[in-house]
Nucleic acid binder design. Structure first.
Lengths: 157, 157
DNA sequence: CCCTATCCATAATT
DNA sequence: AATTATGGATAGGG
Protein backbone atom coordinates (compact mmCIF):
# COMPACT_ATOMS: atom_id res chain seq x y z
CA UNK A 1 0.00 0.00 0.00
CA UNK A 2 0.98 3.53 -0.40
CA UNK A 3 1.97 5.42 2.62
CA UNK A 4 -1.20 7.11 3.49
CA UNK A 5 0.36 8.15 6.69
CA UNK A 6 3.86 8.90 5.77
CA UNK A 7 5.62 9.81 8.95
CA UNK A 8 3.62 7.95 11.48
CA UNK A 9 6.24 5.82 13.00
CA UNK A 10 9.42 7.64 12.38
CA UNK A 11 11.22 9.23 15.19
CA UNK A 12 13.79 11.59 13.90
CA UNK A 13 14.25 13.67 16.97
CA UNK A 14 16.24 12.82 19.98
CA UNK A 15 13.20 12.28 22.01
CA UNK A 16 12.26 15.72 23.03
CA UNK A 17 9.19 15.88 20.92
CA UNK A 18 8.28 12.35 21.52
CA UNK A 19 5.49 11.61 19.09
CA UNK A 20 1.94 12.37 18.76
CA UNK A 21 2.09 13.93 15.34
CA UNK A 22 0.57 10.73 14.39
CA UNK A 23 -3.11 10.16 14.08
CA UNK A 24 -4.16 13.56 15.18
CA UNK A 25 -3.87 15.25 11.83
CA UNK A 26 -7.47 15.44 11.05
CA UNK A 27 -9.89 13.37 12.97
CA UNK A 28 -12.43 13.66 10.23
CA UNK A 29 -10.18 12.52 7.43
CA UNK A 30 -9.05 9.70 9.61
CA UNK A 31 -12.59 8.56 9.97
CA UNK A 32 -13.13 8.79 6.26
CA UNK A 33 -10.17 6.64 5.43
CA UNK A 34 -11.16 4.34 8.19
CA UNK A 35 -14.50 3.76 6.56
CA UNK A 36 -12.98 3.31 3.17
CA UNK A 37 -10.46 0.79 4.27
CA UNK A 38 -12.97 -0.99 6.39
CA UNK A 39 -15.24 -1.30 3.42
CA UNK A 40 -12.38 -2.46 1.29
CA UNK A 41 -11.59 -5.10 3.84
CA UNK A 42 -15.17 -6.25 4.03
CA UNK A 43 -15.36 -6.39 0.31
CA UNK A 44 -12.37 -8.64 0.18
CA UNK A 45 -13.89 -10.77 2.84
CA UNK A 46 -17.08 -10.99 0.89
CA UNK A 47 -15.28 -12.22 -2.18
CA UNK A 48 -13.37 -14.58 -0.03
CA UNK A 49 -16.41 -16.18 1.49
CA UNK A 50 -17.72 -16.68 -2.00
CA UNK A 51 -14.81 -18.86 -2.84
CA UNK A 52 -16.49 -21.98 -1.64
CA UNK A 53 -19.55 -22.86 0.32
CA UNK A 54 -17.89 -23.86 3.53
CA UNK A 55 -15.69 -20.83 3.65
CA UNK A 56 -16.71 -19.80 7.08
CA UNK A 57 -15.25 -16.50 7.98
CA UNK A 58 -15.82 -13.66 10.37
CA UNK A 59 -14.43 -10.17 10.66
CA UNK A 60 -14.97 -7.90 13.57
CA UNK A 61 -13.80 -4.34 13.60
CA UNK A 62 -14.19 -1.96 16.47
CA UNK A 63 -13.98 1.67 15.53
CA UNK A 64 -11.94 4.03 17.64
CA UNK A 65 -15.25 4.87 19.24
CA UNK A 66 -15.91 1.27 20.05
CA UNK A 67 -18.64 0.92 17.54
CA UNK A 68 -18.62 -2.62 16.23
CA UNK A 69 -18.73 -3.54 12.57
CA UNK A 70 -18.77 -7.08 11.47
CA UNK A 71 -19.05 -9.40 8.56
CA UNK A 72 -19.61 -13.10 8.78
CA UNK A 73 -20.40 -16.10 6.70
CA UNK A 74 -22.66 -17.72 7.49
CA UNK A 75 -22.62 -15.43 10.50
CA UNK A 76 -20.17 -14.11 13.01
CA UNK A 77 -21.36 -16.05 15.98
CA UNK A 78 -21.14 -19.35 14.21
CA UNK A 79 -17.58 -18.80 13.17
CA UNK A 80 -16.50 -17.39 16.48
CA UNK A 81 -18.02 -20.38 18.12
CA UNK A 82 -16.18 -22.74 15.88
CA UNK A 83 -13.00 -20.90 16.54
CA UNK A 84 -13.26 -20.75 20.27
CA UNK A 85 -14.42 -24.28 20.38
CA UNK A 86 -16.15 -26.00 23.15
CA UNK A 87 -14.38 -24.79 26.22
CA UNK A 88 -16.52 -26.42 28.79
CA UNK A 89 -15.77 -29.61 30.54
CA UNK A 90 -12.36 -30.62 29.49
CA UNK A 91 -11.95 -34.11 30.68
CA UNK A 92 -8.41 -35.18 31.12
CA UNK A 93 -6.78 -33.57 28.20
CA UNK A 94 -3.96 -35.76 27.32
CA UNK A 95 -3.49 -34.20 24.01
CA UNK A 96 -0.43 -35.03 22.12
CA UNK A 97 0.43 -32.00 20.12
CA UNK A 98 3.18 -33.64 18.27
CA UNK A 99 6.55 -32.10 18.16
CA UNK A 100 5.55 -28.55 18.45
CA UNK A 101 9.07 -27.59 19.17
CA UNK A 102 10.47 -29.27 16.17
CA UNK A 103 14.18 -29.47 15.89
CA UNK A 104 14.65 -27.37 12.83
CA UNK A 105 14.13 -24.00 14.33
CA UNK A 106 14.46 -24.22 18.02
CA UNK A 107 16.98 -21.53 18.69
CA UNK A 108 14.60 -18.68 18.04
CA UNK A 109 13.57 -18.35 21.60
CA UNK A 110 16.99 -17.32 22.63
CA UNK A 111 17.21 -14.43 20.28
CA UNK A 112 15.94 -10.94 20.22
CA UNK A 113 13.62 -9.99 17.44
CA UNK A 114 15.34 -6.67 17.17
CA UNK A 115 18.43 -8.40 15.93
CA UNK A 116 16.77 -10.27 13.17
CA UNK A 117 16.98 -9.12 9.63
CA UNK A 118 14.18 -9.24 7.15
CA UNK A 119 14.64 -12.81 6.07
CA UNK A 120 14.92 -14.06 9.57
CA UNK A 121 11.84 -12.21 10.63
CA UNK A 122 9.88 -13.75 7.85
CA UNK A 123 10.99 -17.19 8.83
CA UNK A 124 10.22 -16.49 12.42
CA UNK A 125 6.79 -15.28 11.53
CA UNK A 126 6.15 -18.39 9.51
CA UNK A 127 7.31 -20.53 12.36
CA UNK A 128 5.01 -18.81 14.77
CA UNK A 129 2.15 -19.16 12.42
CA UNK A 130 2.76 -22.84 12.02
CA UNK A 131 3.10 -23.19 15.72
CA UNK A 132 -0.13 -21.37 16.37
CA UNK A 133 -1.97 -23.32 13.75
CA UNK A 134 -0.78 -26.55 15.21
CA UNK A 135 -2.17 -25.62 18.55
CA UNK A 136 -5.30 -24.23 17.00
CA UNK A 137 -5.81 -27.40 15.07
CA UNK A 138 -5.53 -29.43 18.19
CA UNK A 139 -8.16 -27.32 19.80
CA UNK A 140 -10.36 -27.72 16.81
CA UNK A 141 -9.85 -31.42 16.70
CA UNK A 142 -10.68 -31.67 20.31
CA UNK A 143 -13.84 -29.77 19.74
CA UNK A 144 -14.84 -31.78 16.72
CA UNK A 145 -14.48 -35.06 18.44
CA UNK A 146 -16.68 -33.84 21.19
CA UNK A 147 -19.40 -32.52 19.03
CA UNK A 148 -20.91 -34.76 16.45
CA UNK A 149 -18.70 -35.86 13.69
CA UNK A 150 -19.28 -34.23 10.40
CA UNK A 151 -17.99 -37.40 8.93
CA UNK A 152 -14.58 -36.47 7.86
CA UNK A 153 -12.36 -38.99 6.36
CA UNK A 154 -9.60 -40.02 8.53
CA UNK A 155 -11.03 -40.51 11.91
CA UNK A 156 -7.72 -41.45 13.32
CA UNK A 157 -7.22 -40.67 16.89
CA UNK B 1 12.06 -22.28 -2.79
CA UNK B 2 14.10 -20.77 -5.49
CA UNK B 3 13.91 -21.98 -8.99
CA UNK B 4 16.52 -24.62 -9.18
CA UNK B 5 16.95 -24.36 -12.87
CA UNK B 6 14.99 -23.18 -15.82
CA UNK B 7 14.25 -25.90 -18.22
CA UNK B 8 14.29 -25.20 -21.87
CA UNK B 9 10.57 -25.53 -21.84
CA UNK B 10 9.39 -22.35 -20.29
CA UNK B 11 5.87 -22.58 -19.10
CA UNK B 12 4.47 -19.13 -19.04
CA UNK B 13 1.59 -18.48 -16.81
CA UNK B 14 -1.61 -17.38 -18.35
CA UNK B 15 -1.81 -14.43 -16.07
CA UNK B 16 -4.65 -13.51 -13.90
CA UNK B 17 -7.91 -14.66 -15.32
CA UNK B 18 -10.96 -12.63 -15.77
CA UNK B 19 -13.00 -12.51 -12.64
CA UNK B 20 -14.80 -15.76 -12.57
CA UNK B 21 -17.40 -16.09 -9.94
CA UNK B 22 -17.56 -19.80 -10.06
CA UNK B 23 -16.99 -21.49 -6.81
CA UNK B 24 -15.15 -24.72 -7.12
CA UNK B 25 -12.76 -25.27 -9.91
CA UNK B 26 -10.80 -28.14 -8.59
CA UNK B 27 -10.04 -29.04 -5.08
CA UNK B 28 -6.34 -28.47 -5.41
CA UNK B 29 -6.52 -25.10 -7.06
CA UNK B 30 -9.14 -24.11 -4.56
CA UNK B 31 -6.71 -24.77 -1.80
CA UNK B 32 -4.04 -22.73 -3.47
CA UNK B 33 -6.46 -19.93 -4.08
CA UNK B 34 -7.56 -20.09 -0.51
CA UNK B 35 -4.02 -19.69 0.67
CA UNK B 36 -3.37 -16.76 -1.59
CA UNK B 37 -6.51 -14.89 -0.84
CA UNK B 38 -6.13 -15.51 2.83
CA UNK B 39 -2.70 -13.99 2.71
CA UNK B 40 -4.08 -11.08 0.80
CA UNK B 41 -6.86 -10.56 3.28
CA UNK B 42 -4.59 -10.81 6.28
CA UNK B 43 -2.18 -8.43 4.69
CA UNK B 44 -4.92 -5.90 4.23
CA UNK B 45 -5.96 -6.42 7.79
CA UNK B 46 -2.42 -5.94 8.94
CA UNK B 47 -2.16 -2.66 7.13
CA UNK B 48 -5.49 -1.65 8.50
CA UNK B 49 -4.65 -2.28 12.09
CA UNK B 50 -1.34 -0.67 11.49
CA UNK B 51 -3.03 2.49 10.40
CA UNK B 52 -5.57 2.68 13.15
CA UNK B 53 -3.95 1.59 16.31
CA UNK B 54 -7.08 1.94 18.30
CA UNK B 55 -9.32 0.09 15.92
CA UNK B 56 -9.34 -3.44 17.18
CA UNK B 57 -9.81 -6.04 14.55
CA UNK B 58 -10.19 -9.78 14.28
CA UNK B 59 -10.53 -12.14 11.39
CA UNK B 60 -11.25 -15.81 11.58
CA UNK B 61 -11.40 -18.13 8.62
CA UNK B 62 -11.65 -21.85 8.24
CA UNK B 63 -9.85 -23.57 5.44
CA UNK B 64 -11.66 -25.97 3.14
CA UNK B 65 -10.52 -28.62 5.56
CA UNK B 66 -11.71 -26.76 8.59
CA UNK B 67 -8.34 -25.71 9.71
CA UNK B 68 -8.60 -22.38 11.51
CA UNK B 69 -6.60 -19.32 10.64
CA UNK B 70 -6.86 -16.01 12.32
CA UNK B 71 -5.57 -12.53 12.53
CA UNK B 72 -6.15 -10.24 15.44
CA UNK B 73 -5.21 -6.85 16.74
CA UNK B 74 -4.33 -6.80 19.47
CA UNK B 75 -5.54 -10.37 19.50
CA UNK B 76 -8.60 -12.32 18.52
CA UNK B 77 -9.92 -13.09 21.95
CA UNK B 78 -9.83 -9.50 23.04
CA UNK B 79 -11.83 -8.38 20.05
CA UNK B 80 -14.25 -11.24 20.24
CA UNK B 81 -14.84 -10.57 23.88
CA UNK B 82 -15.47 -6.94 23.21
CA UNK B 83 -17.83 -7.89 20.49
CA UNK B 84 -19.71 -10.47 22.44
CA UNK B 85 -20.03 -8.33 25.46
CA UNK B 86 -16.93 -8.54 27.51
CA UNK B 87 -17.66 -11.38 29.80
CA UNK B 88 -14.92 -13.67 30.84
CA UNK B 89 -12.30 -11.75 28.97
CA UNK B 90 -10.10 -11.40 31.95
CA UNK B 91 -10.00 -15.10 32.31
CA UNK B 92 -8.85 -15.74 28.81
CA UNK B 93 -6.65 -12.75 28.51
CA UNK B 94 -4.71 -12.52 31.66
CA UNK B 95 -1.48 -13.14 29.95
CA UNK B 96 0.34 -11.23 27.35
CA UNK B 97 3.46 -12.60 25.84
CA UNK B 98 3.68 -9.80 23.36
CA UNK B 99 7.21 -8.96 24.27
CA UNK B 100 9.07 -11.77 22.75
CA UNK B 101 12.37 -11.41 24.44
CA UNK B 102 11.26 -10.08 27.72
CA UNK B 103 11.84 -11.95 30.89
CA UNK B 104 8.55 -11.48 32.57
CA UNK B 105 6.35 -13.67 30.46
CA UNK B 106 8.65 -16.34 29.28
CA UNK B 107 6.76 -18.89 31.25
CA UNK B 108 5.22 -20.67 28.34
CA UNK B 109 8.39 -21.46 26.57
CA UNK B 110 9.58 -23.42 29.47
CA UNK B 111 6.60 -25.66 29.54
CA UNK B 112 5.66 -28.67 27.58
CA UNK B 113 2.55 -28.44 25.54
CA UNK B 114 1.71 -31.94 26.55
CA UNK B 115 1.15 -30.73 30.05
CA UNK B 116 -1.37 -28.13 29.11
CA UNK B 117 -5.02 -28.74 29.43
CA UNK B 118 -7.67 -27.50 27.09
CA UNK B 119 -7.99 -24.05 28.55
CA UNK B 120 -4.31 -23.53 28.71
CA UNK B 121 -3.99 -24.51 25.11
CA UNK B 122 -6.50 -21.87 24.22
CA UNK B 123 -4.49 -19.27 26.03
CA UNK B 124 -1.32 -20.47 24.47
CA UNK B 125 -2.88 -20.23 21.08
CA UNK B 126 -3.92 -16.65 21.73
CA UNK B 127 -0.45 -15.78 22.87
CA UNK B 128 1.12 -17.24 19.82
CA UNK B 129 -1.23 -15.28 17.73
CA UNK B 130 -0.29 -12.07 19.42
CA UNK B 131 3.32 -12.94 18.99
CA UNK B 132 2.87 -13.68 15.37
CA UNK B 133 1.08 -10.45 14.75
CA UNK B 134 3.81 -8.53 16.44
CA UNK B 135 6.41 -10.16 14.30
CA UNK B 136 4.28 -9.65 11.25
CA UNK B 137 4.28 -5.96 11.94
CA UNK B 138 8.00 -5.96 12.30
CA UNK B 139 8.29 -7.70 9.00
CA UNK B 140 6.20 -5.05 7.38
CA UNK B 141 8.31 -2.34 8.86
CA UNK B 142 11.42 -3.89 7.51
CA UNK B 143 9.87 -4.46 4.18
CA UNK B 144 8.94 -0.83 3.84
CA UNK B 145 12.33 0.51 4.68
CA UNK B 146 14.04 -2.05 2.64
CA UNK B 147 12.59 -1.77 -0.82
CA UNK B 148 13.74 1.72 -1.43
CA UNK B 149 15.94 3.56 -3.77
CA UNK B 150 13.73 4.09 -6.64
CA UNK B 151 12.90 7.57 -7.63
CA UNK B 152 9.43 7.55 -6.36
CA UNK B 153 8.62 9.86 -3.58
CA UNK B 154 6.77 9.34 -0.44
CA UNK B 155 8.00 5.99 0.62
CA UNK B 156 9.00 7.15 4.02
CA UNK B 157 10.83 10.13 5.27
C1' DC C 1 -3.33 -35.40 0.00
C1' DC C 2 -2.89 -30.62 2.36
C1' DC C 3 -0.56 -26.41 2.42
C1' DT C 4 2.84 -22.73 1.30
C1' DA C 5 5.84 -20.22 -1.77
C1' DT C 6 7.42 -18.46 -6.21
C1' DC C 7 7.49 -17.17 -11.18
C1' DC C 8 5.06 -15.03 -14.92
C1' DA C 9 1.27 -12.47 -16.86
C1' DT C 10 -2.49 -9.81 -16.37
C1' DA C 11 -6.76 -8.02 -14.22
C1' DA C 12 -8.02 -4.67 -10.97
C1' DT C 13 -7.22 -0.67 -8.49
C1' DT C 14 -5.13 3.69 -7.48
C1' DA D 1 1.10 4.76 -15.84
C1' DA D 2 2.33 2.53 -11.61
C1' DT D 3 1.33 -0.66 -8.10
C1' DT D 4 -1.10 -4.34 -6.16
C1' DA D 5 -3.75 -8.51 -6.01
C1' DT D 6 -4.55 -12.80 -8.04
C1' DG D 7 -4.87 -16.88 -11.37
C1' DG D 8 -2.28 -20.84 -13.44
C1' DA D 9 1.49 -23.87 -13.18
C1' DT D 10 4.77 -25.85 -10.41
C1' DA D 11 8.22 -27.17 -6.76
C1' DG D 12 8.72 -28.65 -2.26
C1' DG D 13 7.60 -29.81 2.67
C1' DG D 14 4.84 -32.60 5.68
Amino acid sequence: MQETEVNTTRRWGTGRKKVEMKKIESKSSLIVTFCKRRNGLFKKASEFSNLYDDANLAIIVLSPNQRPYSFGHPDVNTVVDQYLGDQESSERNNMDCGNINEEGEACWWERSVEDMDFKELEKFKASLETLKNNVAMKVQEKRRTRVSTRDFMGGFS
